[in-house]
Design a protein around this nucleic acid. Structure first.
Length: 474
RNA sequence: GCUCCUAUCGUCUAGAGGCCUAGGACGGGGCCCUCUCAAGGCCUAAACCCGGGUUCGAAUCCCGGUAGGAGCGCCA
């Protein structure tokens, strides 16, 4: 039997970081076993599910490169199948009708809670040999409950957490179909996993308590049990649970912050998992090395600093052409036309080691694609002094006469100028930087000027001198 | 309240009874390099939740605390 894993989000919001990690783990397990990965949309809650959320999940998954091997499955399209299984269970006696009203159940739970007991269904409509059931009330459609075993225990041999035992007496008869006939979550999951031949159920560990119920239903159905792995959740930097109100970000927001998808994946795979001292993994390495049994069962905090570090490592080593795709996206996003300046790949080569994110890279490269909006006050004050202006004016002439406009030639020209003037390279490079970049930070001056091009460089040198003089005069 | 899960540097982790004087990485501190910012190199501070056992020996096994977390719906 070949492995099939799935990622089964409910479309009530964007793909958040914890979901992305769960999806990644699930994906890696399938790939490692040469199996298939499936995306299933759990949209039985029609109140909360939205098409926007479905789209957002697809968008996130696509950006991360976690492709489903099958067409996505929607639970709302499988109601006929669920009904069929429920009918069968009713016929088999593994499920039964329950006519208890909501009010009745609420009262029951209130009493149990008052007695400091765990609230659970007391089995009042559960058929039992020799037991007389109440007469069904007229006009009140029943729900369907699963007839959970009352004895013995369920042992869940979790791939991450190890064996976990649940006594059946702790479990009650859960509702598998509502009064209106719509099946419930725990039941749909079971039927889906069964029908789709899921061999590995990898999900958040908020589902461990659902698992024994699901196992019992699977057993009642005569299905083969999948293996389970419950992944701990991701906490915020402060150790608190991530929520909409508290720092939970969608995967696409990490794109906006300037992450490479591969880098985010790499950071995520290392959160709770390790392989010796290795920090960086290619997608292929993740697929061959990832091992659920080595995943930590305790929750981990999301550390933005380390995530940026991983991202930086990718920016430094990845194929510039790959980076260019994201870089282009960021430049356009800040209203810059990437065609109005040097080739993206050349800029990436010059900027990659000094940028932790693509957003930072785009910001630091803005000057190459658009006119300067002004000078940094401090930098201008410091470098546009008499000596600086002398340098700018002198360099203007030197560079204007330069026949080859490329980094080596510029390097040579600037060095010679500095030497001739008896100035350190810093005294020469900094005023130029402020003049052409607008601030005192940029790649090496020769590269900066080469990227900027002759016309823009000369124009900015000229403009800086004029600006500084008019300022001094005014 | 009940059931279940978790607990090593600030953070992610290594650690499967002696290899632990607890290792690596991020972040921090310092030095070197240097035209800026970076990058890089070297050095450095920093942890086994507490208490009992078991054992010649425990971060590792057991028990009990404590502290976090999850679940207990005609939500998913």
């Amino acid at each position: 039997m070949s492995a099939v894993s799935r990622f089964a989000p409910s479309p009530t919001g964007f793909l958040h970081i914890g979901g992305a990690r769960t999806a990644l783990f699930s994906y890696l397990v399938a790939k490692r076993l040469n199996g298939k990965f499936l995306l299933r949309i759990e949209d039985t809650d029609r109140e909360r599910s939205t098409q926007e959320a479905v789209d957002a999940i697809f968008e996130g998954m696509e950006w991360l490169g976690l492709k489903s091997d099958f067409a996505p499955v929607y639970q709302t399209q499988r109601f006929d199948r669920y009904r069929q299984v429920i009918e069968q269970m009713l016929a088999d006696g593994t499920a039964y009708h329950c006519y208890a009203s909501r009010e009745e159940l609420d009262a029951m739970r209130a009493e149990q809670t008052a007695r400091k007991e765990k609230p659970r269904y007391d089995g009042r409509w559960r058929p039992e040999a020799g037991k007389t059931l109440p007469r069904p009330p007229a006009g009140a459609p029943p729900v369907v409950r699963f007839r959970n075993p009352v004895e013995g225990e369920v042992v869940l041999d979790d791939l991450i957490k190890g064996p976990i035992r649940f006594a059946n007496v702790e479990l009650d008869d859960l509702i598998i179909a509502r009064a209106d006939g719509v099946p419930t979550y725990n039941f749909c999951v079971v039927v889906d996993d069964w029908d789709m031949g899921i061999t590995h159920v990898i999900r958040g560990d908020d589902h461990v308590n659902n698992t024994p119920r699901q196992i019992n239903i699977l057993l009642a159905l005569g299905a083969t049990l999948p293996k389970y792995a419950h992944v701990s959740m991701i906490l915020g930097a402060d150790g608190a649970k991530l929520s909409k109100r508290h720092g939970a970000l969608g995967v696409m927001e990490y794109r906006a912050m300037g992450f490479m998808p591969e880098a985010l994946l790499n950071y995520l795979v290392r959160l709770g998992w390790s392989f010796g001292d290795q920090e960086l993994f290619t997608r292929e390495e993740m697929q061959t090395m990832f091992d659920l049994s080595k995943v930590s069962s305790s929750p981990a905090r999301f550390d933005m600093e380390k995530a940026y570090w991983v991202n930086h490592q990718y920016l430094k080593i990845a194929d510039p052409k790959m980076i260019a795709v994201e870089f282009d996206w960021h430049l356009r996003r800040m209203g810059v036309d990437p065609a109005n300046g040097p080739a993206l790949v050349d800029v990436i080569l010059s900027q990659r080691e000094r940028c932790r994110s693509l957003l930072e890279m785009a910001e630091k490269s803005h000057f190459l694609y658009a006119e300067l909006s002004g000078y940094n006050d401090k930098d201008a004050a410091k470098h546009f002094n008499a000596e600086g202006l002398h340098v700018l004016a002198g360099l203007y002439k030197t560079l204007k006469a330069l026949s080859n406009w490329n980094a080596p030639a510029l390097h040579e020209a600037v060095n010679q100028f500095a030497e001739a003037e008896g100035l350190s390279l810093g005294k020469v490079a900094q005023p130029i930087r402020v003049a052409v970049v607008g601030m005192a930070v940029s790649p090496p001056i020769d590269q900066t000027l080469a990227l900027l091009g002759r016309d823009r460089t000369l124009a900015r040198l000229d403009a800086a001198v004029a600006w500084a003089r008019s300022r001094a005069a005014g």
